[in-house]
Write a protein that binds this DNA or RNA. Sequence first.
DNA 1: GATAATCTGATTGTCGACAAACTTACAATA
DNA 2: TATTGTAAGTTTGTCGACAATCAGATTATC
Lengths: 251, 251
Amino acid sequence: MGRLAPVRRASTVDLIAERLREAVVDGSLPPGTVLGEAELAYQLGVSRGPLREAMQRLTAEGLLVIPRRRGLAVRTMTPEDVRDIHWLRARIEPELGRRILTLPAAERRTVLAELGAEVKRMQRALKKDDARALGDAYLDFHRVLAAWGGSLRLARMLGTLLIETRLCTFSMFEHFEVHRDLVAEHVGFVEALAAEDGERFEALVQVHLEAEVRRLLAEPEDATEDESDRLLAETPGEPQPLDRLDLPEGL
Amino acid sequence: MGRLAPVRRASTVDLIAERLREAVVDGSLPPGTVLGEAELAYQLGVSRGPLREAMQRLTAEGLLVIPRRRGLAVRTMTPEDVRDIHWLRARIEPELGRRILTLPAAERRTVLAELGAEVKRMQRALKKDDARALGDAYLDFHRVLAAWGGSLRLARMLGTLLIETRLCTFSMFEHFEVHRDLVAEHVGFVEALAAEDGERFEALVQVHLEAEVRRLLAEPEDATEDESDRLLAETPGEPQPLDRLDLPEGL
DNA sequence: GATAATCTGATTGTCGACAAACTTACAATA
DNA sequence: TATTGTAAGTTTGTCGACAATCAGATTATC
């Protein structure tokens, strides 16, 4: 008697949340973007009720902020956030290698195949000098890691951290900006796993994350003309950045 | 000119979420509890709108599950969850000691004082054999650790993990159940910090968390085939975003 | 001329209501 | 007697509307 997985249809709230997450990830809603509920609800083809519910969820995930009576805004990450997020990632991701190496051989091969595919995507993107594609492959590489290396909770948590990482990139530079070393570093991850060298994997990931922080903080947004200033001005920034206003309460 | 912290009034949603969190923590809403929206909204004195928004937030935090068309239910933790949560805590909490030790001397003293106070609370509770008070002090001890050892994000994340830990206790035993060794272990934490021995602190916390898992899983409460199991089966976390349907596009 | 007070327009926060969906109970049939 | 089909009842999911609130602009005052 084969056991069937329970059917689970996504609710409207799920759909909206996912749609918004995508928009944040692909850059169509850059950090600092302020949106009105009515307008956004109309665009999504839903009423304000479910939209507001989805907003609460994304707020809990740290992607959105809800300034009182000002709709919603995409969170702007500060250098503080960059360090924070990467510190957390550094606590978790290096360990994932060890976990993956304890998997049955068959599954382990699958993981390696999937990771290899993502690395190939990265290489192709690098060749085409397509920073966006490179970033996407990067995201998926680490998602694969999270999916296989841990539980659902862990995968979800890391997934959020990864999207936040993307937000860091957008917040620090104003376009996709990915370093070339990135691909080489990820080749190293896969090699370490293939060699079943958990220690080495751990060390490499650690180094990678530290490098990422340096790269992200190296160029502290020289806020030059155009777009950036407009957005920055929209967020009543100076005394207190918008983001600080409405962080979810509680410890 | 003293810099004033911006006022932040809690929104209704914040209030509701906080109230629900409290109820979960103090055991008045044990795992598996199923609640109807209308009834609960009436009890809280709000309408269903804000309540539903708060539900989404707590769902994102992993405290609630929202079975379709069945209102809301307090999450029931499985042995899997127990391991998972403590694994995550074990990645983070041991490091907090090191961080606290890098604080300025004055603040460090404050931390030690606060931690000491919580330990005293634990001792008093133990003497009175008051498991609930002991659990509360435990919670606050680790909250202090989180508050001083990291960023807001980290404190929030750990706060959630701690509440989930409490849910684990309720799910495994159905009443407050705290081991006696607990107090001694925490005395050890404080001593290690007082001695500025980060290594030792790390090791002790690690041991403590492993012990907790053992204690929680030692007596797997025979999950009787009732409500809670059905609900759990219905909502095993979030599905991978493979199944994304399309939103009804713009009216 | 600059600061303060007032007004207005727009948007949110909240609520009540309706319809669809689901559960449960009951009845009918094999 | 067990199983399937049917129907009623309850609850959710969603929407539309109203009022309080706030931001921005305008006017008045020192």
